[in-house]
Write a protein that binds this DNA or RNA. Structure first.
Lengths: 223, 223
DNA sequence: CATCAAATAGTACAGTTGACCTAGTTTCTG
DNA sequence: CAGAAACTAGGTCAACTGTACTATTTGATG
């Protein structure tokens, strides 16, 4: 009764974790060899979200994952490698989604721009998102690898915005397009701090989303 | 030669710290009894900014201030007390400045609104600000006292915005005014992460400030 | 069933660090 | 000079760090 599966003898939180893993797995060709790795990454993600970067240690992750530190070392050769893979694991789906929304068929460029903005505005209401991203911003202040991942994320995000703005407003200069894109990015990310999950102004979230969407679309149209 | 003043035998950084202290002291009636406390708070502030909350420890502050941990315990009875006073020390000047700008004589309400926004947009270019506030946002996720200070700060900030918006647009509902104020707050705070000091898009800061100012003022005028 | 590599546990290393406390010393002030 | 304020040194005790190493279990293949 001590060595069945990770699900069986692990803490209750792990059941929820496996659920989250399942939700994340959109890949139609599951790669069994990476299953355990992904499980660990998911545990690490939850730990970082629940307890902050200070609690994200080899031992802490191992404990939360119900395995020994030695075994975790087998899957991830070092702490830095673990963090690196964790950031990839969390951020890659966002980049994929930005690409998908940018290239989506149907609707005007302005509709698609609105869709990208709406995606982020709705995502920031998730507790995981509300807690994860500020943690990333702070981490990136002192960790070059985190900074790299952060830049990659926002470059992809803003790149998608730029392309859609350009399509909508072919008369604007590249500079004007880029400035608008960063304005949109900063405006929306800033809301994480104030109307994210369980934030003081969370009740205002939907109203603020509409106001934001209208204000930013108008900024693009009337630039 | 071992006990002259804190300036003499302390690390070079301390000289700069005392400079910062001097800049901060706008009080025409210096309170000598609090000098050493303020010195410690200033050291703690710098430490938090340079190395992050993880480095803000009793020992760390004592080392950076060139004193023994025991002596630091004399001035601040506990770690929590130190952090509490540190947050007050950093945030109070902002609240005072918001009040000052809100009540400033001369100019239309819209001018004063613009002045408040401009103050924050320019402040976020300071390296200290760029690094301090994200740290505060993360800290507030897991520390109730920090959360309290953060709410107090933004309540004051948004309160000032609300009053100025209301003066400029007496026809708007309270709800509309509040939503506009939080939109402004989130929009501007979000820029810290992207065009703050030494950030990848810092070169875009001035252009983005103008765009932000115009966009937000228009949002208020045309709401 | 035997084999063998992958996976896993356990633990030792070699420190570091944390907040807090106590007893004693210096410095300042009236 | 007395007494208060400011300060130092040293220590307590508990917890934790990443990593390396060995020994064991597991699971699939032949």
């Amino acid at each position: 009764m001590h060595n069945e599966t990770a699900t069986a003898d692990a803490a209750p939180i792990l059941v929820a974790l496996l659920g989250a893993l399942e939700r994340r797995r959109t890949d139609p060709n599951p790669r069994p060899t990476t299953n355990k790795r992904e499980f660990i990454l998911e545990v690490a993600r939850q730990l970082m979200i629940e307890k902050g970067m200070a609690a994200l240690t080899i031992r802490g992750v191992a404990r939360a994952a119900g395995m020994s530190p030695g075994n975790l070392g087998y899957h991830f050769p070092s702490y830095d490698a673990l963090v690196d893979e964790l950031l990839k694991w969390v951020l890659t789906p966002y980049l994929e989604e930005f690409d998908r929304l940018r290239d989506a068929a149907g609707g005007t460029p302005l509709d698609r721009l609105r869709a990208v903005m709406n995606f982020v505005l709705e995502d920031l209401a998730n507790r995981d998102t509300t807690l994860f991203f500020p943690e990333l911003w702070v981490l990136a202040n002192r960790d070059d690898n985190a900074k790299h991942h952060m830049e990659k994320l926002y470059t992809g995000y803003v790149g998608a915005l730029e392309e859609l703005i350009r399509e909508a407003r072919r008369d604007l200069s590249d500079e004007a397009v880029t400035n608008l894109a960063w304005l949109i990015c900063a405006t929306i990310e800033g809301q994480t701090v104030f109307v994210g999950a369980e934030r003081p102004q969370a009740a205002r979230r939907d109203a603020l989303r509409e106001l934001t969407l209208n204000t930013l679309v108008r900024a693009v149209v009337e630039a």
